[in-house]
């Protein structure tokens, strides 16, 4: 209970900082929102145009592709909303730049800092809002009538997708403990990999490849698989991979992320970092 109260308290102060920043400089805030909207729209536009051109790609109709793109934007929007500030989602950056010292001198458990420090509910919500709008529009076009269970499933799947992307970012990002310069941007590479590939409907690939993309390189679990599950609840064909795989993969990736990050922190405590750069820290 104490932990929950502390989490809310810390999210609160992050929100306050973000609001103050937002109110202080209208020009930059508008630029931020425009940038987020441009980034979110452009990331989905390409695939949407492909769907428009070909009518049906990867076993999905144009509107189903749009629904999947909306889901992908929501997932990316949640990451942007909760894990942007101080690069908490792009963990190889603070690690590679030697900024973990700043976290270690706070009287707050590290997991709590990582969960709360990145929260920017005011300046970082545009991607999520865009995603919700796209999903809502697509759901309307598809004639979906979501019930409570469906909404709960949607929330659960979204959390799983977010956890998988962040987990992979942390697994790769832990390399920055050992090679701060070379691996500084490896989390960015991982997240870009997801951003670039999660938007493609992979239903047209072979069964082996589909399975690989839901396990070995789990980009399929970031949007295509959960979107297919959600659409499958409404009479659209389900993917031929058992639904429980997303739960298993979430737990596996999360455990690997925690283990590799802890191992990295132990290494950091032994070796420290010979590098320090303040870029991206509290700015």
């Amino acid at each position: 209970m104490d932990n929950i109260r502390r989490l809310i308290q810390l999210w609160g102060i992050s929100a306050k900082l973000d609001l103050l920043w937002f109110l202080r400089d209208t020009k930059y805030c508008i630029l931020t929102i425009l940038a987020d909207i441009a980034a979110s729209l452009s990331s989905v536009t390409g695939v949407f145009l492909l769907a428009e051109r070909f009518g049906n790609i990867g076993g999905m109709s144009k509107d189903q592709v749009l629904f999947m793109l909306g889901y992908a934007s929501i997932v990316n929007g949640i990451i942007a909303l909760f894990f942007s500030m101080n690069n908490t989602g792009w963990i190889s950056r603070p690690v590679g730049r030697g900024q973990m010292d700043h976290k270690l001198i706070q009287p707050v458990p590290l997991w709590m800092q990582l969960l709360t420090e990145g929260f920017i509910p005011v300046s970082g919500n545009s991607l999520l809002v865009c995603g919700m709008a796209i999903t809502g529009y697509a759901a309307g076009q598809l004639g979906l009538a979501p019930g409570l269970l469906w909404i709960l499933l949607f929330v659960m799947l979204t959390i799983c997708s977010v956890a998988i992307i962040l987990g992979c970012s942390y697994i790769a990002g832990s390399l920055a403990f050992y090679a701060p310069v070379a691996a500084e941007e490896i989390s960015t590479t991982v997240i870009s990999l997801f951003n670039d590939l999660m938007i493609f409907p992979i239903g047209g690939l072979s069964a082996v490849l589909r399975m690989a993309l839901c396990t070995v390189v789990p980009v399929g679990l970031a949007a295509w698989f959960p979107a297919s599950l959600l659409l499958g609840q409404n009479g659209v064909p389900k993917p031929d991979i058992p639904g429980v795989i997303i739960l298993i993969m979430t737990i596996t990736v999360a455990m690997l992320a925690v283990t590799s990050f802890r191992k990295g922190m132990k290494y950091y405590a032994k070796r420290g970092s010979t590098r320090y750069h303040n870029r991206g820290h509290r700015s």
């Binding site: 900082l17 320090y276 303040n278 509290r282």
Partner: peptide, 22 residues
């Protein structure tokens, strides 16, 4: 190194510290 929030007034950094350090 600085513990201050770069794009905020000093008083806001102090408020942040008050919350985080309880």
């Amino acid at each position: 190194r600085t513990e201050l929030w770069w794009d905020h007034p000093i008083s806001v950094s102090f408020e942040w510290k008050k919350t985080v350090w309880n």
